[in-house]
Design a protein around this nucleic acid. Sequence first.
DNA 1: TGCTGATCATGC
DNA 2: GCATGATCAGCA
Length: 221
Amino acid sequence: MKSAPKSINELLSRATDIAGLTLAHVAELNHAPVPKDLKRDKGWVGQLIEAELGATAGSKAEQDFQEIGVELKTIPINQNGKPIETTFVTFCSLMPPFTASFEDSVVFKKIQRVLWVPIEGDRDIPVRDRRIGTPFLWQPDQNEFLLLKQDWEEIIELISLGKVETITARYGEVMQLRPKAANSKALTETIDEFGKIIQVNPRGFYLKTSFTSRILAKAFG
DNA sequence: TGCTGATCATGC
DNA sequence: GCATGATCAGCA
């Protein structure tokens, strides 16, 4: 287990040092076995990079590197450098009181500064052979901020009106609300249109691939 | 074949 | 169940 990086530069330096390496290489540095596939190890890549960069292990809220205000996100990319999967941001509370402004939301707190680490993710590449790409620091620009804010406000508005069950993943320009749970039988509380408490499948916010694709394109020109 | 809804592992 | 880390898988 590595110590936490003391500055953004130190974090960036560590991330840059592993660019170009395979997952097997980094796994060896961390004395970690490499799974054959990710079917039962969906978070393995993210946790490996966390360990390598010195993020605090375990489940805790807020950013990965709280002292320096950075969230770490690995992102699987294809041969063209485009994202293969959406990016999970955080759970969405479905019960009042609802956060009043996007600026105060957990979503914004998490993604106001992200260290993106692209990693080859095509399923025909064995996990051990997948290479780590060039990391980069990202903060939403004015346009990105507004798009995220609009989506967040629209989704929270519907939930506050008791209409969470009408929200599908098709909602949102750049950010969507989707199930996030052990399975479809998991339940959490929300309100219906009359304010009555009902049980629904838990939901989380995800960044759409079209949005993260633009972020990657901007970073790499 | 891209995308949405579903799912997996783990700690507490 | 919630929160961490995400990817799977089947259907339109």
